[in-house]
Design a protein around this nucleic acid. Sequence first.
DNA 1: TAACAAATCTGGTATAGACCAGATTAACGA
DNA 2: TCGTTAATCTGGTCTATACCAGATTTGTTA
Lengths: 239, 239
Amino acid sequence: MSSSHYQQIQRYFSELIANKALLAGSKLPSEREIGEQFKLTRITVRQALQNLEAEGLIYRQNRRGWFVTPPAVVYDPASYLSFNLYVSEQGCQPSTQKLAQQLEPANAHIATLMGIPEKTPVLFLHRRRYIDQRPVLIEKMYINIALLPGIENEDLTQSLSQLLKNKYQLEYHNMDLFFKSTSLPAHAANDLGISAGQPGLHIERINYLTNDENNKQVLEIDYEFWRHDAVTINISIRD
Amino acid sequence: MSSSHYQQIQRYFSELIANKALLAGSKLPSEREIGEQFKLTRITVRQALQNLEAEGLIYRQNRRGWFVTPPAVVYDPASYLSFNLYVSEQGCQPSTQKLAQQLEPANAHIATLMGIPEKTPVLFLHRRRYIDQRPVLIEKMYINIALLPGIENEDLTQSLSQLLKNKYQLEYHNMDLFFKSTSLPAHAANDLGISAGQPGLHIERINYLTNDENNKQVLEIDYEFWRHDAVTINISIRD
DNA sequence: TAACAAATCTGGTATAGACCAGATTAACGA
DNA sequence: TCGTTAATCTGGTCTATACCAGATTTGTTA
C-alpha cells in the first residue's frame, strides 16, 4: 500500500479536511509542529504539504502558514453572467481592484488579432479579483478603443460586460478561449501575493463583436491567471 | 533579483530549452551530475527541476530521468475533429489503447444524468491515448447503450465520434464541459506511468444527443485525465 | 549467440541539522 | 492609550548524507 511517511501525513490531513474537522480557511499547524507530531523531519512534512497543495486541498501564505482551501468557484467564461454575479450567486463575495490602466501602443500580436496597425493605442487594463478577500485572479486586458470610444473614462473596477451592455448596447458571446494548466508566471504570482512557480490556470480569451467569420472585429483580448485551486471552468456547447 | 540557487538552475535549463540547445524529448543530466556542476546539493537541484516540471518545460519518468517536454497539442473537445485527426494534423502520431471494457450497473450520478434507473447497465470504456508514443491521456467513459445498441461489439480503440457518425449517423455537438486544474488521482497517474500527485488537467464531459433543453438525452459521460503539460484547450464560442 | 545474473545508474524517500527574511506578537516606553 | 521596538514564529532556502527500488547496462555463462 501507500506506505511512505509523507503519504501518511497527506492522508491524515485529507481526511481531516474531508470530514470538516478542518474548515475552509483554517490554519494548519506549523511545519515544525507537524514534524514533531509525526516524528518526521520538516522536509518530509513539506513534501506532504506540497502534494496537498497540488491537489488543491491546502494553500500557503508566504511565511504565514498553510490554510485549508475554500471550495472552488464554478466559472463560465462564456456566460452571460459577469464574474461578480457568478461569484455572488455561489454565496461568496467578489471584489475587484484596478492595478493599472493606461493607453499602450499595440504590440504585433495584439495588432494582428485586432486588425489594426502596430502601435495603435489600445487600452491596457490590469486588475486583481478576489473571492471572499482572497486574491484568486489576475487579469490583463487589451481593449480596442476604436470600437469602444470613451471607455477609458468609465469606472473600470466594475464588470466589463455590464459596462459594454449599458453604455454601448453590446454583448459579446463570440470568443476564442485557450486554457493551459501551468505554473503562474512571476508577475502573476507576485500580484497574487504568492511565491512564483505555484500551479495555476492560464486563460487567453479573444472577444469578438460579431459572429461574422469574414469580418472579425476584436473587442478585447484578455489574459487571465487563476489560482489553480480557486476555480472550476464550466462551458456548455450548444449548436 | 531572483538570486536563490535553485532559480539559477531553473534559468539555465529554461534558456537551454528555449534556445533549442536541448530538444524536445532529450534527457537532462542526472540530478547528481547537475548538483556537481552547480556545486549544489540534490535537494536544491530537485527544487529547480520540480519548478520546471510545474512550468511544463520538463517531465520525469520514474527512475529513468528528466526529459524535455514536447510542445503541447492544441485540443478542442467541442470540435468536429476527433482526437486522432487533431493530433495528426499537428504533425504528431496519435494512438489509443483499450485498457478495459465492460457492462456496468450505472451509479447514482451516471443514472441521474442519463435519466435511467440506477443499476441499469452502461458500457464502461477505459482507454489510454498516446501522442508520439508518450501516454498523455486517460479516458474513462460511460456510454448509454440504450441509445447505441450493439456498440459493445465494435472496435473501441477507434475514434468514438467517427464510430457514432458511421454506424449510427449521430453527431454530438451539444455538451457540458468541466475543467479543473489539479493533481492526477492515483489511478490516472498509475495508468500514465507517472508518480501520483503530478499536476494534471481533469475534464468531465457530458455529451447530449439533442439540443432540446427539456429532453436531454445523454449519449456518454466522459472523464479525461491529461498530463498538464501535454495539452492546451481551445474552444470557440459562437452564437 | 542467447539467456541470465550482477553491477550500476536513476530518481524516490528520509534524517538532522542550519541560517534567512518576512509576519506576527509581546514588551516597552512616551 | 498608543506607537515603536524587540523577540518570536513561520515558511523559504540550503548543506551533507544515507538507503531504497526500479531501470538500465554490463558481464558472465550455457
